[in-house]
Amino acid sequence: MWLFWLFRRRCIKVNTMHDMVLEVVNRLLLPFIQLFGMYILFHGHLSPGGGFSGGAVIGASLILYSLTFRFARIKHRIDHDTSVFFEAAGALIYVAVGFVGLFFGYNFLTNRGVFPLGVPGQLWSSGMILIITLALGAKVSGTILSLFQELLEGGSDERGNP
């Protein structure tokens, strides 16, 4: 099914910068890049990596996606408001998780005593670290994609082209 979707010819009528090689390579590589990024995010407290690394990998994959399908499909494109929303939501979740410890009478960002700690070495073994890592991943990937969109689409150049 995935291979069928991969090599199906989708003719785009209105295009200015449509590249066949870029689109096929994108369809080949994008699931694996995002799967690796989610692996880094979810194993941030067990193995090397964490919020910034996984968010950077996912952000690079989102840049590749928006570079390919920027002109092709209006329905599937990621606009600037969405990336800014993910960026702000990541920071907000981070602060909200920090205030949970403050609400129960501990310090800011307290982990032990507030969140349930599992067995060490397993995936659910870190309390709030996993939530914070996911929020950081959303923040970093949104920031990278927002930087790229701001640079490529914001304003007009010196010749007046948008």
Binding site: A56, A60, I144, F148
Partner: peptide, 14 residues
Amino acid sequence: ITEAAIGAGATSLL
């Protein structure tokens, strides 16, 4: 991991 994602991927595209 961060260098491979940021330095070789995102910075080149920027």
